[in-house]
């Protein structure tokens, strides 16, 4: 069995805010390319022939009513659905040009490259330090100095260094929900992913913690490509560059977020966004 190679991303300091995009700027290359992707749970077709591209360093929001398939599609991008009995994926799903469903793809490598943050913060019941170093240790990083640098770098990128630096060796479970979620993001960043999947990352958080995560998403897109599933329409409008609207397993519309929230092309999108159904 051959192991597929996936794009790597070297750690870098948080960049300054980007200048406004130029009208004639060249289109960014697609990092994720889905072509006619369908996902089945047994005989049930949860995702119906979805095709979409996600560019490098952009934030894409997936929206749609419960059961529309947005989380199913998200979980197909790092193959976590493989763990669901009876789940089957057809079509083509590439990351960095590599078909992630090709035979020989190493799932550990894939999931290192495609990090995931879940709805409910799920820190390991260990110290803050151990949470962040868990991935790098599995990858073979042993030197204390190197691990210390990773911890500081990732906690800074996740905007939680100042709150955590004096309690690195205390239990992560002692943190607030918002802090735990940012720790989970730091933990995901520690494996240097090129893609970060977020499945309703703020639904269990209060408005202040939600605002911090949203700021983080906008800041992190210089480092990683982010896909966020959210039921919060305003959150999608605030943080994403492009928005995809799913309904009954189909991709109804996918466009610039400003277009989707001011003048969507499809009637179903408009009715959902304006709260008239769903």
């Amino acid at each position: 069995m051959t192991t597929a190679t996936l794009p790597d991303l070297a750690p870098s300091p948080m960049p300054a805010p980007a200048a406004l995009p130029q009208a004639d700027a060249a289109p960014r290359p697609a990092l994720i390319e889905a072509k006619n992707v369908s996902v089945f749970y047994g005989a049930f077709e949860a995702i119906k022939s979805v095709s979409l591209d996600v560019s490098t360093n952009e934030v894409v929001a997936f929206i749609g009513p419960s059961g529309c398939g947005k989380s199913t599609f998200l979980r197909s991008i790092n193959r976590i659905n493989d763990m669901v009995r009876g789940c089957r994926v057809t079509g083509e799903l590439k990351i960095g040009g590599q078909d992630i469903y090709a035979s020989g793809v190493d799932l550990v490598t894939l999931r290192r490259q495609v990090g995931m943050v879940f709805q409910k913060p799920n820190p390991f019941p260990t110290s803050i330090y151990a949470n962040v170093t868990y991935g790098p240790r599995l990858q073979g990083v042993k030197k204390r100095q190197e691990l210390d640098a990773i911890v500081e770098d990732c906690l800074r990128k996740a905007a939680i260094w100042d709150e955590a630096k004096d309690r690195l060796h205390t239990s992560a479970l002692g943190m607030s929900g918002g802090q735990q979620q940012r720790l989970c993001i730091a933990r995901a960043l520690a494996t240097r992913p090129s893609v970060l999947l977020m499945d309703e990352p703020c639904s269990a958080l209060d408005p202040i913690a939600t605002a911090k995560i949203e700021d983080l998403i906008v800041g992190l897109k210089k480092l990683v490509t982010i896909i966020v599933v959210t039921h919060n329409m305003h959150q999608a409008a605030r943080v994403s560059d492009r928005t995809a609207f799913f309904y009954l397993g189909k991709l109804i519309e996918y466009d610039e977020t400003s277009t989707m929230f001011t003048n969507p092309n499809q009637k179903q999108t408009e009715e959902y966004i304006t709260g008239r159904f769903g």
Partner: peptide, 9 residues
């Protein structure tokens, strides 16, 4: 209500 789309317009 932070309206969107046709309502915002």
């Amino acid at each position: 209500y932070q309206p969107a789309a046709c309502d915002l317009r």
